[in-house]
């Protein structure tokens, strides 16, 4: 298998803090690779090193077979980068921004103008092409920033939180765009705190916690341990600590990975008997407001693997719009 990105033993320290501690990754060519982790886990530091904006203390990075240490410019020619902030030039129009970004990659005038028009059209921004970027809405800015990242048709694209902080329609459009790019053979390295987004889009996912990759595999393989599990989400009122603590003893076949005064998550390898559970709670003065089945998700895997709540992924990130239920919890 050919790999677009190969990282070996990557380490980065800032004074006494180790931001990235010996990461090794291999992203197959044409894959959509998700890089998930809580804030401060080392995702952004890793991306800045992969894109040439920071130098690793140790380790090697190969982009499309090119050693980033010895041939950084050649490697940068093969990547597109969409940072977590829409950082185009506010005083230029959308069209001018795209043309300028194309020029940075040495594309001649005729081609860059044609490409800019093509991308404005593809991202639904044709009508806004002559308006200044500074006057765009958040969603429009994000779309144009993604367009700028692919203006030179890079074989590898780094996307850092592409749908963070934008409206649902724009997020959906961007996800479709990402899927299309992947369909055309572009390798996509995606950082997102919307765990459901990663599950829906990615072929492979790596979980990074405290600067280390704790698990990396295909989404199917990651979901395998939870695929046969049954899960129930219960919304309730009045669940006190004593009742909660007694639940595992009362229902030995069930697991309660989440127990809070107003909600709980119940898991088992067999179908979960809802009526006895509701009755048990009701007899102890706990009012069950809602109980619904939950499909095993990557969020469950993330919680199992990292020991963290999925909410830790997006604790400080944007408003969360994509319906990534774990990420926005």
């Amino acid at each position: 298998m050919t790999h677009a990105i190969v990282v070996e033993n990557l380490t980065k320290r800032f004074d006494s803090v180790t931001a990235v501690a010996g990461i090794s990754l291999a992203v197959p060519q044409g894959a959509l690779f998700g890089f998930l982790g809580p804030n401060g886990a080392g995702k952004t530091t890793t991306i800045t090193m992969l894109t040439g904006l920071a130098r690793p203390d140790t380790g090697t990075i190969r982009i499309d077979g090119l050693d980033c240490t010895t041939r950084p410019r050649a490697a940068q020619d093969r990547i597109g980068v969409v940072p977590d902030e829409s950082n185009l030039y506010p005083e230029l129009t959308g069209f001018e921004n795209l043309c300028f970004c194309a020029a940075l990659y040495g594309i001649d005038r005729t081609e860059r103008r044609a490409r800019a028009r093509e991308l404005l059209d593809a991202f639904g921004l044709t009508g806004a092409g002559d308006r200044r970027f500074g006057g765009y809405s958040k969603g429009m800015k994000r779309r144009l920033t993604v367009a700028a990242g692919i203006i030179h048709r890079p074989p590898i694209l780094f996307l850092d939180e592409p749908t963070s902080g934008i409206d649902v329609a724009s997020a959906r459009q961007l996800r479709q765009m990402i899927a299309t790019l992947r369909g055309k053979g572009t390798t996509v390295f995606l950082t997102t705190h919307h765990i459901e987004e990663a599950e829906r889009l990615c072929d492979r996912v790596a979980f990074i916690v405290a600067g280390r990759v704790v698990r990396e595999d295909t989404v199917d393989a990651l979901l395998e341990p939870v695929r046969d599990r049954h899960a129930l989400l219960v919304a309730c009122a009045g669940l006190d600590a004593a009742t909660a603590a007694a639940l595992p003893r009362a229902f030995p076949g069930l697991e309660f990975p989440l127990l809070e005064p107003d909600r709980m998550r119940v898991e088992a390898h067999t179908p979960i008997p809802v009526a006895p559970l509701v009755r048990h709670l009701d007899e102890r003065g706990v009012r069950v407001l809602e109980a619904r089945r939950a499909r095993p998700t990557l969020e469950d895997v993330f919680i199992r693997v990292t020991g963290l709540e999925a909410g830790a992924l997006g604790a400080d990130k944007g408003n969360g719009n994509s319906g990534g239920k774990g990420g926005n919890a």
Binding site: L53, Q76, I79, V81, N87, L88, Y89, L104, G106, A148
Partner: peptide, 10 residues
């Protein structure tokens, strides 16, 4: 951070 675009240029 628009300067990052320039630093990313090959």
């Amino acid at each position: 951070r628009s300067f990052e675009r320039l630093l990313l240029a090959p």
